[in-house]
Design a protein around this nucleic acid. Structure first.
Length: 434
RNA sequence: GUGGCUAUAGCUCAAUCGGCAGAGCAUCGGAUUGUGGCUCCGAAGGUUACGGGUUCAAGCCCCGUUAGCCACCCCA
């Protein structure tokens, strides 16, 4: 008999951790709605071609991290699918498929859910991870670029994560990036014999990536490399200047990072990433995004600009844990537990608990036949504030209500129980706040 | 995908040189029948991650597999 366990790189979110994620998801949804982003849900898998075309066939995400699945009977039916490694390609596919270009522009959409990458796991890096995603399709910016970055920062603020810094850059567009890439290639090619093997290999495929190499030997070469700023065309420069002006208007102070490039091919112009300042370790990017003005067309639509971001909820949760702070609330814990003195009381306990829940109380009956003392012990350990004790008084229409925190107890008529406990619960809540 | 470190009860960890697998916490039960938290007693919980090898004898040494972590790669 094999021992079963969660697949590599995945994990179970147990109640306390799931509660943290739920809070993050609710905050994300509420915030996005307030900014006018409508909810959407796309499938967790698409035809592989959506990603090969959309994300870029030579990117790491597609080349080595795409979570491919094969299904279908027989050669004719068989088709290649892939679990989504990121949300944007799927959402843009949906934009094209449903003719969203006829909707009022821009189309603003949000989605939160699991993403999949077949990568080697590490702390903060999973094969299934959760992302809060926001996309604005149909607005060329740059004002919307600033709005969307401000939204991300508002999210970090709302969930209580401090010290988040935003790095921004412009990586140009079809008009100016090719020339810059060539200039970069020429620069590094001139020092080809000094390049580590890995970097020399990337010289052909993606020279931009050399810029954020972590190899120490690369530092001097990167420092002397031409920067994108000097190669931006007039339109891209104006766009970038506009972005900075609008960010300033909403009190966002970005760090301009000329070496910031993104691993997904579809990005143009604005690129940004979120980091926790002072954080150690390599998996500390909390999220990132950018503009993808060519993506809609790549996936078969008319030329349409777009911009979006994804924030990793796993890493936000990790950072919150790192940062300390109050423990997550556990709203499934009962305020009231109905216990019984007699083993055969379970009918009454269930009945009373059902009635109290109907009145809006977080209530749980103890349906065991163990001794009353064990039941009270269990109620206290479950975090309940009140225990309703069913006993012989029931014959006269009464139960005992015990305040487990204060240690006091009084008799209450069954007919008054719901009202009495509702009032007590309000005081209970006030007590928790104070 | 590359290199390294690690794996003992649900959790945190012991186990001398290779010599009978343990503790604390948590769970469940009991301490004369309807009153919790504290205390005391007890039970349950293990193929020492899995599979092989060496040895009279392996939790401990060797090989493989799986998983976690760290550094790369890359990103969320």
């Amino acid at each position: 008999m094999p021992k079963f366990q969660a697949p590599r790189g995945t994990r179970d979110l147990l109640p306390v951790e799931r509660a943290v994620f739920l809070r993050l998801e609710h905050t994300a949804r509420d915030l996005a709605l307030r900014y006018g982003y409508a909810p959407i849900e796309t499938p967790m898998f698409e035809g592989s071609a959506v990603y090969e075309r959309g994300v870029g066939a030579v990117t790491d995400v597609v080349e080595k991290e795409l979570f491919r699945v094969q299904a279908g009977r027989g050669e004719a039916e068989r088709e290649r699918w892939a679990l989504r490694p990121e949300p944007t390609a799927g959402i843009v596919r949906a934009f094209v498929q449903h003719g969203m270009r006829t909707w009022p522009q821009p189309v603003k959409l949000t989605m939160t859910g699991p993403m999949f990458r077949y990568d080697r796991p590490q702390a903060g890096r999973y094969r299934q991870f959760w992302q809060f995603d926001v996309e604005a399709i149909g607005d060329p910016g740059p004002a919307i670029d600033a709005e969307i970055i401000e939204l991300a920062m508002a999210f970090f603020d709302a969930v209580g994560l401090s010290d988040v810094q935003v790095l921004v850059n412009s990586i140009g567009d079809g008009a100016c990036r090719p020339a810059y890439v060539e200039a970069l290639r020429a620069h590094f090619a001139a020092h080809a014999d000094e390049l580590p093997d890995l970097e020399r290999a990337r010289l052909d495929t993606n020279p931009l990536r050399l810029l954020d190499s972590k190899d120490e030997r690369m530092a001097p070469l990167v420092a002397s490399a031409p920067t994108i700023n000097g190669h931006l065309c007039d339109d891209c420069q104006a766009h970038f200047d506009g972005l900075l002006a609008h960010l300033a208007a909403v009190a966002i102070e970005p760090r301009i990072s000329p070496t910031l490039v993104r691993g997904l091919d579809y990005y143009t112009r604005t690129a940004f990433e979120f980091y926790r300042s002072g954080a150690q370790g390599q998996q500390q990017a909390l999220g990132g995004g950018g503009r993808y003005d060519g993506l809609v067309e790549l996936l078969g639509g008319l030329p349409t600009p777009g911009i979006g971001f994804g924030i990793g909820l796993d890493r936000v949760a990790l950072a919150l844990q790192d940062q300390g702070g109050p423990p997550a609330s556990e709203p499934w814990k009962p305020v009231v537990v109905v216990v019984g003195a007699n083993a055969e009381d379970t009918v009454v306990r269930l009945q009373l608990a059902t009635e109290l829940r109907g009145a809006g109380l977080a209530c749980r009956p103890d349906l065991t036949t163990r001794r009353l003392g064990k039941q009270l012990d269990g109620a206290a350990k479950a975090g309940a504030h009140f225990a309703v004790i069913c006993g012989d008084e029931l014959d006269a229409g009464h139960v005992q209500v015990k305040d487990l925190k204060a240690g006091t107890q009084r008799q209450v008529a069954v007919t008054d129980l719901a009202r009495d406990l509702t009032r007590a619960q309000m005081q209970h809540r006030h007590g928790e706040e104070g």
